[in-house]
């Protein structure tokens, strides 16, 4: 489907964890076709805010065929504007945009890794892979800095997903970084593996260094960069990607991505 720009009304906005909110709106046209990994651009009604450019957000969940949920954490001007929205307020939504995660990873195991506010597309992917039912085993590793930021995912995750929580300070789940949790799962798994991740650049870069391309046949990373248009026009959001040998090309996060082969992205 081609992306559509719509002015929609906020149905609900509520806090889920420290600085972390869920935004719900109705948009049946895109709700019917959204794939895990895709995103939309959200913008304020002209003159209603000092936010100028639209901002990209991965879809979190689609519920009841027409209602879309976005999960966000306040960092700057736009997310603070969003946190102050109220039901009935109008927002611009442009989507669905971007490519999707590979939904046919093969018959083995998959590990999904969400770091901090990178968790939304990972949850949608877990739902979808679980529903497709082709995997032997599906692990989801969710890392946060501290317990107050942890989103309670149990109600939205399928029962078949093995969930592992880590926090950097040990205030919830296992103490440490997601990489340690992923390494211990890797030791248990002998089958071919797919690894999917979305989170801070440093986390995804660290994963790319501990994963063995011999064992991991698919390594997909959902990336982020400052965006303006969201559909490949402005060329503002490029990601450096190695395309054979030492040559690096700048691929547009919004058009060729946001999902890239994690072994090819130049992380530092």
């Amino acid at each position: 489907m081609k992306p559509v720009f719509k002015w929609v009304r906020v149905l609900q906005i509520s806090g889920l964890a420290e600085r972390t909110y869920i935004l719900r709106f109705e948009e049946p046209e895109s709700a019917a076709v959204i794939q895990p990994g895709q995103f939309c651009m959200i913008s304020p009604l002209p003159g209603s805010s000092n936010v100028f450019l639209p901002r990209p957000f991965s879809y979190y969940r689609v519920i009841s065929r027409s209602v879309i949920e976005i999960l966000f954490r306040t960092f700057g001007r736009a997310t603070r504007w969003m946190a102050n929205l109220a039901p009935g307020d109008e927002i611009g939504v442009f989507g669905p945009l971007g490519n999707t995660f590979n939904l046919a990873p093969g018959p083995g195991n998959a590990i999904l890794v969400g770091g901090g506010i990178g968790i939304p597309p990972i949850v949608m992917l877990a739902e979808r892979l679980s529903a497709l039912g082709r995997l032997k085993r599906l692990d989801l590793v969710y890392g946060e800095s501290t317990a107050s930021r942890v989103i309670y995912l149990a109600p939205v995750l399928p029962a078949s997903v093995r969930c592992h929580l880590t926090t950097e300070d040990g205030s919830a789940g296992q103490r440490g970084l997601v990489t340690a949790a992923v390494e211990s799962i890797l030791k248990e798994c002998r089958d071919p593996l797919a690894v999917y991740t979305c989170g801070p650049k440093s986390m995804m870069g660290a994963l790319s260094r501990i994963l063995d391309p011999e064992q991991v046949t698919l390594f997909e990373t959902s990336c982020e960069e400052n965006m303006a248009c969201g559909m490949g026009i402005c060329q503002g959001c490029v990601i450096p990607v190695r395309t054979g040998g030492d040559s690096v090309r700048y691929l547009r996060c919004c058009a060729e991505g946001p999902v890239f082969n994690g072994f090819e992205v130049q992380w530092a």
Partner: peptide, 17 residues
């Protein structure tokens, strides 16, 4: 190929690229 990222950022009532 163009410049390395970040290439754009929002400013008050505008953007830099």
């Amino acid at each position: 190929e163009g410049n390395p990222p970040p290439r754009i950022v929002e400013t008050d009532s505008g953007m830099l690229n």
